[in-house]
């Protein structure tokens, strides 16, 4: 039932930044940010909620692309962004607190960022 509560909006980075600022002024709160590995690169989802969940902004990026941090707008974003940096190896700039890869101390660098071998999965 929560399906219709979230609207997915695809956009580019500059547009996303202005939109995030607008959402802050409208009184939205940051719900979560997460990254997904897709065939053409990565997609980052920014979910915002106004009382109840409502908007999900999505950007598509390549591995080398720099992503500006939104922690200047929503301070809480620094945790999510550090997580994405450490698990996917993406380059996020100007984070409020930058752990420089020491947020999760994983034995493999960027464990979630590697391309999937095949859809079969398994051990």
């Amino acid at each position: 039932m929560a399906k219709e509560l979230i609207v997915f909006i695809d956009m580019e980075i500059p547009e996303m930044l202005t939109r995030v600022e607008a959402l802050k002024l409208e009184g939205y709160r940051l719900m979560q940010i997460h990254c997904t590995r897709v065939e053409s690169g990565y997609e980052i989802n920014y979910t915002f909620a106004l009382d109840l969940p409502s908007q999900n902004l999505r950007i598509h990026i390549d591995r080398e692309q720099e992503i500006p941090s939104i922690s200047g707008i929503f301070p809480a974003a620094f945790l999510y962004e550090n997580e994405i940096h450490d698990l996917f190896g993406l380059n996020i700039t100007d984070m409020l607190i930058d752990y420089h890869g020491r947020f999760y101390r994983t034995s493999v660098p960027a464990p979630f960022g590697q391309a999937k071998k095949d859809t079969g999965g398994g051990e």
């Binding site: 607190i97 752990y99 947020f103 999760y104 464990p111 979630f112 999965g121």
Partner: peptide
Amino acid sequence: MPSWGFVHRGLEKLAEKR
């Protein structure tokens, strides 16, 4: 100043193999 990563087990990734 928080720091963590002591109990990260990568369960999100595990979903791709189960």
